[in-house]
Amino acid sequence: MTPGSAVPALRSFGDRLHAVFTERGQLCVGIDPHAWLLTDWDLPDSAAGAESFGRTVVEACAGQVGIVKPQIAFYERYGSAGYAALERVLADARAAGLLVIADVKRGDLGTSAEAYGQAWLSAGSPLEVDAITVNAYMGVGSLAAVIDQAGHEGKGLFLLAATSNPEAAAIQQAVVAGGSQAGLTVAGAIFADVAARNAQDATHALGSLGVVLGATLDLAAFGVDLALAPAQALTPILAPGFGHQGAQVSDMRNLYGGYAQSVIVSESRSVLSAGPRRIAEKIARRVRETGAARG
Score class of each variant (00 low, 15 high):
Ala136Val: 14
Asn254Pro: 00
Ala177Pro: 00
Leu10Ile: 07
Arg288Gly: 03
Tyr137Arg: 06
Gly183Phe: 00
Ala145Ile: 01
Gly258Glu: 08
Ser125Asn: 10
Cys61Gln: 03
Val212Gln: 07
Gly275Tyr: 09
Arg253Val: 13
Gly139Gln: 01
Leu255Pro: 01
Leu206Cys: 06
Gly25His: 07
Ala131Gln: 09
Gly210Gln: 04
Gly63Asp: 05
Cys28Val: 13
Thr235Ala: 08
Ala182Asn: 01
Val175Leu: 02
Ala192Thr: 15
Tyr137Ser: 13
Gly97His: 09
Ser112Arg: 06
Lys155Pro: 06
Gly156Arg: 03
Val20Leu: 12
Leu234Lys: 15
Phe53Cys: 09
Val194Ala: 01
Pro126Glu: 02
Ala93Val: 10
Arg277Cys: 05
Gly243Arg: 02
Ile72Phe: 08
Ala50Gln: 06
Ala274Val: 11
Leu213Trp: 01
Pro276Tyr: 10
Val140Glu: 08
Ser5Ala: 15
Ala144Tyr: 11
Val7Asn: 03
Thr185Ile: 01
Leu10Arg: 15
Phe21Cys: 07
Leu228Lys: 14
Ser80Thr: 14
Gln26Tyr: 09
Lys155Leu: 10
Ala73Phe: 10
Phe222Arg: 00
Gly246Pro: 09
Leu121Lys: 09
Gly107Val: 06
Asp108Asn: 10
Asp148Asn: 12
Ala292Tyr: 04
Ala91Gln: 12
Gly30Trp: 05
Leu43Asn: 11
Arg286Cys: 12
Arg286Gly: 00
Ala102Gly: 15
Ala47Met: 08
Ser266Trp: 04
Trp41Asn: 08
Thr2Met: 14
Gly243Ser: 07
Ala195Gly: 01
Glu87Tyr: 07
Glu153Tyr: 07
Leu121Asp: 12
Glu128Asn: 13
Leu37Ala: 07
Gly183Leu: 00
Lys282Gln: 15
Gly243Glu: 07
Asp40Lys: 14
Arg197Lys: 13
Ser273His: 11
Ala9Asn: 15
Arg77Asp: 09
Thr111Gly: 10
Asp15Tyr: 02
Leu43Pro: 11
Ser112Asn: 12
Val104Pro: 02
Gly207Glu: 10
Val224Tyr: 02
Gly188Phe: 01
Thr163Gln: 06
Ala123Pro: 04
Asp148Cys: 02
Glu128Lys: 08
Gly241His: 11
Leu38Tyr: 09
